[in-house]
Nucleic acid binder design. Structure first.
Lengths: 237, 237
DNA sequence: TTCTTTTGTTAATGTATGGTTAAACCTAAT
DNA sequence: ATTAGGTTTAACCATACATTAACAAAAGAA
């Protein structure tokens, strides 16, 4: 299972410096999107979710503070680090007023920047687990807890599911009694759609069928060339 | 409810500068306790709860970093700001490794310090309040006192826990019966997430399991690739 | 039908992660 | 300097997971 790298938006108009910094950050396992000016920076910010923004203060057309204010209107939480050439007190204060998390004077030591980034990410590492996502499903006589990755039959002893088993069953459950397109699972879970991932998915379907066997009213049907369907029959009728 | 002023521990050996800074902060509605050296600083820290620590790095007998480490053993969350006369890169890195929240070079502008304090306080205010002030836990037949680092079995003789053992068990208890993500413990307790800290954590899990063995209804389960789960079975029902 | 493609299923393989113990290391206190 | 407590690193083993291969069976197309 692949760890998701943290995503950084870097807005810096100096092409040389920007590229060097971007490469340095990427070498340290961050995903970096580099925007060359404030305008572009805001566009990119709106299009994606970022874990951190690094903004140059002095930029043509739209300076870092203005950009920060726009960003804050959309998102009150993203950490922001300002880069500035001169250490003007007014600038520093202005930065903190806009909600800066930190401040760096150019030229700065790249290692120091790395430490600051780490420190900020750690602060944000709050228990984000309590996501409002949906983690619990009733599947016939089964209970799927998708967060703890277990499947209980009739409230008995739970079987542990592997990450892939869990994700796949969850996707099926989300489309209960409806088509769950093959392609959807492949792009969402396997992040790639080719012959091998497709076969891998079939293997997991087989595993899930085994798990679900105890309840004859639950089954995973194939829709040839389309995908799968988790059907739950209601005896009562 | 009445608005309680934020409490700041200021550790600064220069009596003139210290007093001026203390007065300035108090004028800005902070409660400030001023310690004249590292020793005294630690004593005062143990005696009370603070919202922020401002530590001078260069002090006789016990420097700011050492003090910070001691403080961190008692409390992983208090924000710490370092003050330093010289801007040595090694010092800055050292500071962040100990878990600094910010760093200021003397002489600095007092307004800038104020802004940093405000920014940090704001951050803490929005950070999950949930895990803030909970120090006592019932874990099956065990009682964990996380402040004194004691673990009692059936009210008997308490075992003394090391700081890491204690923090880890506390985090697990906070997420009782639920997932405690690996990453969370690593960033909150180890302040770094890499192969070695991760292995170190596994070692501590093994230690905790040993402690908890006397009660068969308490166990720490692993969720492969995700984290751990402290389960407490209620046999009584 | 016959041929081709898609799916079902099981087993083998390789890699990543976790469990556990002991030794090494570090640092504060003696 | 020595020691003791705490933490990290190393080593070795066990388990969990995902992928791939292999072959059988179904479904659809010709």
């Amino acid at each position: 299972m692949e760890e998701q790298n943290k995503k950084i938006l870097l807005v810096e108009d100096d092409p040389n410096f920007g590229t060097v910094l971007k490469d340095y950050l990427m070498m340290n396992d961050y995903d970096v999107v580099h925007a060359k000016n404030g305008m572009e920076g805001f566009e990119k910010f709106k299009k994606d979710d970022y874990d951190l923004c690094i903004l140059d203060v002095m930029m043509p057309y739209k300076d870092g503070f203005t950009l920060a204010k726009e960003i804050r209107e959309k998102n009150t939480d993203v950490p922001i680090i300002f880069l500035t050439a001169k250490a003007m007190k007014e600038d520093v204060l202005k930065g903190y007023k806009v909600g800066a998390d930190d401040y760096l004077n150019k030229p700065f030591d790249s290692e120091v920047l790395l430490m600051k980034i780490k420190a900020i990410m750690q602060r944000k590492a709050t228990d984000s687990v309590a996501d409002s996502k949906q983690f619990e499903f009733k599947i016939g006589r089964f209970d799927l807890n998708s967060k703890l990755r277990f499947l209980k039959f009739d409230g008995g002893d739970p079987s542990k599911l592997s990450p892939k088993e869990n994700e796949l069953l969850r996707l099926l459950a989300l489309h209960e009694n409806d088509l769950m397109p093959r392609e959807l699972a492949l792009t969402k879970i396997w992040r790639d759609d080719n012959y091998f991932t497709s076969r891998s998915m079939d293997v997991y379907i087989a595993k899930l069928r085994k798990y679900l066997k105890p309840d004859p009213n639950v089954e995973i049907l194939n829709i040839h060339g389309e995908g799968f369907r988790l059907v739950i029959n209601n005896k009562s009728e």
